[in-house]
Amino acid sequence: MSNIANAFKNGKAFIPFFTCGFPDMETSKAAIKAAVDNGADLIELGIPFSDPTAEGPVIQRSTLGALKNGVNTNKIFKMVKDLRQEVTIPLVFMTYANVVFSYGGEDFFAKCQEVGIDGLILPDLPYEEKEEFAALSEKYGVDLISMIAPTSHERIAMIAKEATGFIYVVSSLGVTGVRKEITTNLTEMVEEIRKVTDVPCAIGFGIANPDQSKRMAQIADGVIVGSAIVKLLEKYGKDAPEYVGAYVKSMHPRNLL
């Protein structure tokens, strides 16, 4: 059992996403700590990529903003190392395959293990391509997180069977970003997954308000929120950590159910 399982042992988990280094390194670190202090169970740390094809406008803007400020992979490893002085909950990276490939797969995974990263989400690495990093994931104990989408249908069992850490259930078609309504039959998707694995399921994409968080937590083991949090950092800048903390508290399913 990897450290990721600990995120789900206290009941329904809340998983916030942060773009590392947005709006700057210090603020992003402070916001992450505020989320942890307010009950976040696992943190998704985005390593900015120049062309994030799975992201909506909010996260796109934040990644370009971070890159403009000179954020790079090594600075983020350093930031995680600093965070690990105080933060014990599981941390996973979310980035794109080229960031890992370009760093050198072996070096990247070794560094993840060294600084205390528990998993890696690569939205452009589907089941068919996971061999690219599967052996390294195993070797360094960094889970490659599988994603399952509303279009996955008969692929669900195949993906879920080999999933480790947790399963990222994509709530809707399209890219990340706040949505008014989530219409996918997620109950059915999670039931399909449950037939083949006990690995926890967390739902993400488009979740922004407490009502959505509550409904998603009734279906799955955890709730992932990205764009809504990045928006707070965009809006409040250096003052954002306080707002992020309050928001995490208001969204945490354990405070809602």
Binding site: P123, P126, R155, V170
Partner: peptide, 21 residues
């Protein structure tokens, strides 16, 4: 069968698009 040309090619896309391709 996986659409490789030597080491190049492949299908590095979001799961959402896999059934479409």
């Amino acid at each position: 069968p996986q659409g490789r040309f030597g080491i190049h090619g492949g299908q590095y896309i979001p799961e959402t698009l896999m059934n479409a391709v």
